[in-house]
């Protein structure tokens, strides 16, 4: 069978309508997880099927798509998903955040502020923020209905009692518009402040768990915390060794068998752009030469 045998953006129209209806409900009820009849996709569950279905339901032929995994455009799964849409939707692709109209991401929010007209699609493994406290779907659904989030606060507080700090560093739960507690997907908590008041539309797809949820632009999103232990979106206390940025989220790399380390931006598009503008870091070629 050839690619032409598949519909524009792979999914059949009935499936897209079903996903589109779920997306609109998600926007109308920010942070609420809308059940949807996720389809089997030609990539495995857990590898972005939710994000891929949301992207497929949103793409028009006029879009420019960017796909990132861990902030990078060239990680294998990002490459694979980008290729899938190049084949099935013939859309333009770009690695430049500002040029993209639809960005599918796994685990990061780009460093550059997003703008109106952009859509950020998150791949979500476990959409239920309460799942690790209560494994039963029927029970967590009831807890959301009754706004019964005490268990979550107890868990965070136990962290503080035991470790002196909240021991959640990614997939850090947030409260949306003072109503629903939401899982922001496994982004580092460093990225949490970018969830709220974002000019772009943020859509979340969990394929295996059959849930879609959304944040409209400029939505009020608060990371859960306590007065005496305010939320702290920390990152490694270093600058990027390639572009010198002191404000970006960093990957740590082990560079030799003696345990030498270097730190580089996880957002490759951001880092490359800064290097092109002439910014340098500790290990830039010029820096080494100097």
């Amino acid at each position: 069978m050839t690619d032409q045998a598949y519909n524009f953006a792979y999914l059949d129209e009935a499936t897209k309508r079903m996903i589109r209806r779920a997306l609109l409900k998600g926007l109308a009820i920010p942070g609420y997880q809308v059940p949807f009849a996720s389809r089997e996709m030609p990539m495995p569950y857990g590898w972005g099927t939710g994000g891929v279905q949301v992207t497929a339901a949103c793409l028009t032929p006029d879009d420019t798509l960017k796909v990132i995994d861990q902030g990078a455009d060239d990680t294998t799964n990002a490459v694979s998903i980008r290729k899938f849409f190049e084949r099935t939707a013939q859309v333009q692709t770009s690695e430049t955040t500002a040029k993209a109209t639809v960005i599918q991401t796994r685990h990061r929010i780009p460093e550059v502020a997003l703008t109106e007209g952009q859509i950020l699609v998150y791949q979500v493994p476990i959409p239920e923020p309460l799942r690790f406290l209560e494994p039963r779907e029927s029970e967590t659904r009831r807890m959301h209905a009754l706004e019964e989030y005490g268990l979550m606060h107890v868990k965070l507080y136990e962290d503080i009692a035991r470790h002196g700090a909240i021991a959640t560093s990614y997939a850090y739960p947030v409260k949306v518009e003072g109503r629903y507690v939401m899982d922001p997907s496994p982004i580092p908590k460093f990225d949490n402040p970018k969830l709220g008041s974002n000019a772009a539309i943020q859509l979340f797809g969990a394929g295996r768990e059959q849930r879609i949820y959304a944040l409209p632009p400029y939505t009020d999103v608060v990371s859960l915390d306590f007065e005496d232990h305010p939320f702290d979106p920390s990152k490694a206390d270093h600058a990027c060794d390639l572009c010198g940025s002191e404000v970006s989220y960093l990957d740590e790399l082990i560079t030799d068998d003696k345990g030498s380390r270097m730190f580089v931006c996880s957002d490759t598009s951001y880092c490359t752009a800064r290097q092109d503008e002439g910014h340098t870091g500790r290990l830039s070629p010029e820096g080494v030469a100097a």
């Binding site: 129209e13 589109r20 609109l24 339901a57 028009t60 006029d62 859509i119």
Partner: peptide
């Protein structure tokens, strides 16, 4: 329908 959906979205 993709373009119309984007208007709805």
């Amino acid at each position: 329908s993709a373009r119309a959906f984007r208007a709805c979205l």
